[in-house]
Design a protein around this nucleic acid. Structure first.
Lengths: 195, 195
DNA sequence: ACCTGAACACCGTTCAAGT
DNA sequence: ACCTGAACACCGTTCAAGT
């Protein structure tokens, strides 16, 4: 587990270890199992130790969410890079987005769960990176006019679909694949110039 | 507080009283304050009393969420009824949807928070009612072909936008009003026959 | 049938004390 | 500077006992 200073009283890099522990817990047992004490246990320290690195649980969760956004940007980049045209790239980003959320629902929910301002620097930075990536895709596909509103619309569609499927708030009768196909075209159509 | 049998050992209608208490707590202090024990306190019973009416907290939360969906359907109906054409009705539903979520963010989040199957009958019924209302609006505006995929797309847009604004996951620079306007037209455009 | 009170195993946070 | 252990006020759930 611990690479260096295994038997030392001090951990060395507890802050990062707690984030890593949190990610593992999330992947393995979901949001319900993600507690401060569980992270401390997994990192091999007392439950009071995290206090020196994160003032409150929310701060730890914010940094875990930040790593989610970091992975997220990577996944979307990878998806877009496989396509040639701007419209195809945007559609691929949308599909990668939904795939990420459906493959790793726990961390995705954490990323969008907290209603608090979440002043974590790492989170703010990662969220900005994700937004800029989206802005880039939308600009390439639909031009620079009114980008932020268009990007908001695109994000809304894709986030809403991902969330509704994850939390199972759609009737079991809906064909999710068909809906995803419709959304993929709707993505470009919604932000194109008027017909 | 208690209308009948105020001094009786038995409550009379504790089940409904707990739901009412939960709604009040949610409205007043948000999701973080909504606990089983808080509901019991507000209803004037011991924290063990709810067990006889709800097997687990999740069941109580499900019924509280159900009342949210019930209010929700009413609000959307009211919004749609003010407009004449099917397209205008659909747009009005969308705006009422977002207004509901932004006015009562706590209960809205509860309605879409839980990832569990939530086998509450009341919740299932209320969710079905909401879905049917949406199906009706979409059918009137865009015809009966492929309705469930179209309805899914509409719900995704509107839910995604509501959620992103509530949890503040959009950069502060975006003009939410402009984005909402773009979405309102995008709503019909996304489900219209191809251009 | 419905409710209480005590108990159990959790949780986040605080703080003196250790290294 | 960083960590521990005990303490505090919470939480959901269980269960014998009361009415």
């Amino acid at each position: 587990m611990k690479k260096k200073s295994a038997k030392s009283y001090h951990h060395g890099d507890l802050r990062e270890a707690l984030v890593t522990a949190g990610r593992a817990i999330l992947e393995k047992d979901g949001m319900g199992a993600l507690t401060l004490r569980a992270c401390a246990r997994r990192a091999g320290v007392s439950h009071a130790a995290p206090q020196h690195h994160f003032a409150t649980v929310a701060d730890l969760l914010a940094d875990i969410a930040a790593t989610g956004f970091e992975d997220f940007v990577t996944a979307l980049d990878k998806g877009a890079s496989r396509e040639a045209t701007p419209a195809a790239k945007l559609m691929a980003m949308g599909r990668s987005y939904v795939a990420f959320a459906q493959t790793r629902p726990a961390i995705y929910q954490l990323m969008f769960a907290a209603p608090a301002p979440l002043k974590s620097e790492r989170l703010q930075k990662a969220m900005t990176a994700a937004w800029n990536q989206l802005i880039g895709g939308v600009t390439a596909a639909a031009g620079p006019e009114n980008v932020s509103a268009k990007a908001t619309l695109v994000w809304s569609m894709v986030h809403g679909f991902a969330m509704l499927t994850i939390v199972r708030r759609l009737p079991p009768t809906v064909d999710e694949t068909a809906a995803l196909d419709l959304m993929s075209e709707g993505l470009s159509r919604a932000i194109e110039g008027r017909a």
